[in-house]
């Protein structure tokens, strides 16, 4: 199977393409998305750091950019977690918010409501 690095990169591309061209929500072109993501990513760094720093989740060195050493910063890691986790988290939240906005627009078109 492809490495986590490649899979995470693909996930980001899939999420952005879905947002722009499939759902046409274009969240990545909005300030609101990036403002929300700038908050979310801080919490992702904390929670990924917790999961990885404590060894709740352990990564195979062959699947990630880094060597597999659990370090605070460097060797392919940020706040203990592999940088791939940031891509994973970005794709997860962008897809969820994209579908959320898409479903809201669908509902709004079916039942127009003020506000």
């Amino acid at each position: 199977m492809i490495s986590y690095t490649v899979a995470a990169g693909i996930a980001v591309v899939v999420a952005v393409v879905t947002d722009l061209f499939i759902l046409r929500t274009a969240l990545v072109r909005t300030r609101a998305w990036w403002a929300a993501y700038s908050i979310v990513v801080v919490f992702q760094l904390v929670t990924n750091g917790w999961l990885t720093g404590r060894g709740i989740v352990r990564y195979d060195a062959d699947a990630i950019i880094g060597s597999g050493r659990i370090v605070l910063l460097g060797d392919g890691r940020i706040a203990y977690a592999p940088v791939e986790d940031l891509a994973f988290g970005f794709a997860l939240v962008l897809l969820s918010c994209g579908l959320w906005v898409w479903a809201g627009a669908k509902a709004g078109a079916a039942h127009p409501r003020k506000g």
């Binding site: 709740i56 969820s96 579908l99 479903a103």
Partner: peptide, 29 residues
């Protein structure tokens, strides 16, 4: 709306997770 937003994405990521754990990319303590 919340189900529409979360279920497909969760399904996709669980599938990824299952493949990644079976490939040994990560494991849980």
């Amino acid at each position: 709306r919340l189900l529409v937003a979360i279920v497909p994405v969760a399904t996709l990521f669980v599938a990824w997770d299952l493949m990644a754990t079976s490939a040994g990319h990560w494991r849980f303590d």
